[in-house]
Write a protein that binds this DNA or RNA. Structure first.
Lengths: 114, 114
DNA sequence: TCCGATAGCTAGGATTACTACCTATGCACT
DNA sequence: AGTGCATAGGTAGTAATCCTAGCTATCGGA
């Protein structure tokens, strides 16, 4: 398994929710938003995306509706109210997590906190 | 399982290596360094620490040596050359990962990039 | 006609952090 | 003397989740 793989653990859900911030999207579009929004870094296989979306839907954070566009079945997902709240709180959580990791990795004792 | 738990996945190894940056430490001291260095955020159980250290040793990133201090057995770990290289590259990796996640989470289109 | 992009899906494997438990020493308090 | 806590090490088994590998299907272009 790639090293990159494990790094996402626990953060994928927030990222998926974030892609729905500006309106509903279907799975494949979410995948592309994630890829493009990360500069190609998070180019996840559909085998990662779809199960994760089902998980989020089961958790009541997103809801999906079927539609057909050009003969292609699409399932559009949007954030529920619960999902919006969750996104907001997880965003704060990420900031703290990232700050803690960074602090441990780069112990630059600030060049003088005035 | 706690949400916090999954968040660490894939990042624990780097954090453990980082605690050895300034010299050898034994497992319990590593646990404390992690706890204190993260403001109490990463207060990991020994059942997480020790297996992870064994994993890192198997991978050749750290080496441990037994000693006895005050009747207590201690296993002191230090970074190998390979481990130092790994830490350096993973630190860069973390920066990029964190930047990508942050970019996706907070789409603040900078207030004007001059 | 075949291939790639789009669009959706599942089963099973691999990894990893956790819970829960165990042993043992030294010290402080009762 | 006995109890509990911090220190110090460890294991077995479980849960979570992301991946690989595979599947179906439509549409447009080479």
């Amino acid at each position: 398994m790639k090293a990159e793989a494990q790094a996402l653990k626990g953060h994928l859900d927030v990222l998926l929710l974030a892609t729905l911030r500006d309106g509903p999207r279907h799975g494949y579009a979410i995948k592309e938003t994630l890829r493009d929004g990360s500069g190609g870094r998070f180019d996840l296989p559909t085998g990662t995306i779809y199960p994760a979306l089902h998980r989020l839907e089961r958790a009541g954070l997103i809801t999906g509706t079927w539609s057909t566009v050009d003969g292609r079945r699409r399932r559009s997902y949007r954030l529920t109210t619960k999902g919006q709240r969750h996104l907001a709180s997880e965003r704060g959580n990420w900031r703290q997590f990232a700050a803690a990791v960074t602090a441990l990795l780069e112990p630059t004792p600030w060049p003088a906190t005035p």
